[in-house]
Amino acid sequence: MDLREVLLEKRSDILSMWSNMIMDQYPPDAAVFYKTEKDRFLNPLGYIVNEGLESIYDWLLGEGKNEDFRYATDRIMRVMAVQDISPSKAISLVFMLKKILKEAVKGDSTKGILDEELNGLYEKIDEIALVLFDMYMGCREDIHRIRMGEMRKQNHRMMKNIDVLNKRKGL
């Protein structure tokens, strides 16, 4: 059994452990809700995070499609970018996976899983972190852009009309 098989076998355990770790960063009352409410419309945050974790995990193991990976991780970062957390904390969610993986394969080391294999995954995780960081910054930029755009939209027509008026008057 190689590392990949072990990790695929333990997929759901690892994912739920990972998801719980992230949810536990919320106040306990919210955490319970985010963890237990399965209706994706009533619990969008929980749904988005879980969906994102799944696709990161699958992508890491070479299972998922790039497109899904981008979509789902972008959604997670969008959630994180408007929460009360610092960028480093937002990105740290992917590093949690390292520790969980280490823990998960500990018992299986006898099966011949090499540290190198694990290290390979770790490197990939670091790459993901960089991707997430870019996404996070992209989200923050989005927010600033939207904020600016919105100020204009509030009186968008006024401004446009004034422009037209000025042009007519030859200004």
Partner: peptide
């Protein structure tokens, strides 16, 4: 009124 049947799995979920 829960969207119990939504989602890919279409499974029933007991709601608290």
């Amino acid at each position: 009124d829960r969207a119990n049947l939504y989602g890919e799995q279409k499974r029933i979920i007991y709601s608290s």
